[in-house]
Amino acid sequence: MLNLILFGPPGAGKGTQSEKIIAKYNLIHLSTGDLLRSEIQAGSELGLKAKTLMDQGLLVPDEVVIGMIDHKLSAHRDAAGFIFDGFPRTVKQAEALDTLLASHNENISVMVALVVEDDELLARLLNRGKTSGRPDDQNEELISKRIQEYNSKTKPVADYYQQQEKFVPINGIGEIETIFEEINKAIAAV
């Protein structure tokens, strides 16, 4: 089973590349945002707990998100693998994910990180903001804050997987197909 974390800052091209990876490797897309919405819509116990917290403006705790991922893993035991999107965002979440996967006799195969310089990210997101309609892609100050947040809080997750020799940095600047070829090489090396 291929379990891949697609990693990188906002604007690095994760959405574009994840679609290509999912199509080629037949992976189940695990987006924490999508999981939260579907559990809430299904009215599951975890979904109701998450909705109560979200309605109060609170963040959903890691154990609730891990529980939702556990449900998804259990529901797709015959899957070719999973691509993790938006999770883990902290080392604590990475440790919890590793523990969960081990309970299913699985592990993270590889973390592919799209590496893009901050000034390029800013330009990409401002450009995307012209067509996406997303207000967070139209405000230079907000974009800088998101990139800063990634650099300070999320980047340590890369170090965590680097210590496990599962971290593969890939230049996220260039032609989409060229970047995808590099991702394929990283997957083939697993």
Rank of each mutant, 00 (worst) to 15 (best):
S74F: 09
K51H: 06
I40M: 08
D70I: 08
A79G: 14
G47Y: 00
K72S: 05
L53K: 07
D62S: 00
L48F: 06
E63V: 01
T52G: 07
R77K: 15
L59T: 06
M68S: 04
H76R: 13
G67M: 03
V65R: 01
L53W: 05
P61V: 15
G43I: 08
A75Q: 11
K72I: 06
D62E: 07
A79H: 13
H76G: 04
V60R: 00
P61N: 07
V65F: 01
R77D: 05
A42E: 09
A79Q: 12
V65H: 04
E45M: 10
L58H: 13
A50F: 04
R77N: 09
I69V: 15
E45K: 12
L46Y: 00
D55S: 09
L46C: 10
L46S: 02
Q41R: 11
H71C: 06
E63K: 08
G57P: 05
V60T: 07
L53F: 05
M54V: 11
K51S: 07
G43M: 06
L46A: 06
L48I: 11
S44D: 10
A80D: 13
K72D: 02
T52L: 05
D78Y: 00
G47E: 01
V60I: 07
D70C: 13
V64D: 02
H71N: 14
D55R: 08
E45P: 03
V65Q: 01
I69M: 12
L59V: 09
D70G: 14
E63I: 10
H71R: 07
H76W: 10
P61C: 09
D55P: 06
D62W: 01
K72Q: 14
Q56T: 05
G57V: 08
L59E: 11
A80P: 02
M54T: 13
P61T: 11
V64C: 07
T52R: 08
M54A: 11
R77Q: 12
G57R: 14
G67H: 04
V64G: 04
M68R: 03
Q56I: 12
I66V: 13
Q41N: 08
V64T: 09
D55L: 12
L58K: 15
D70Q: 15
D78N: 15
A50I: 00
K72L: 06
A80F: 04
L73Y: 01
I66G: 03
L53D: 04
M68A: 05
Q41K: 11
G43H: 07
G47P: 02
S74W: 10
I66Y: 02
G47I: 03
Q41P: 09
L48H: 08
L48G: 09
S74E: 15
A42V: 04
S74Q: 14
I40Q: 01
L73D: 02
Q56L: 12
L58Q: 15
A50V: 05
E63D: 15
D55H: 13
D55G: 12
V65K: 04
A80K: 11
K72M: 10
S44Y: 08
H76V: 12
A80V: 07
V60C: 05
D62N: 11
V64R: 02
V60E: 01
G47H: 04
S74P: 02
D78F: 00
D70P: 00
A80N: 14
A75H: 14
A50H: 07
M68E: 06
T52E: 14
A42C: 08
L48T: 13
L73E: 01
L58D: 13
Q56N: 13
H76Q: 15
D55V: 11
K72V: 02
M54K: 12
T52V: 03
K49A: 15
L58I: 00
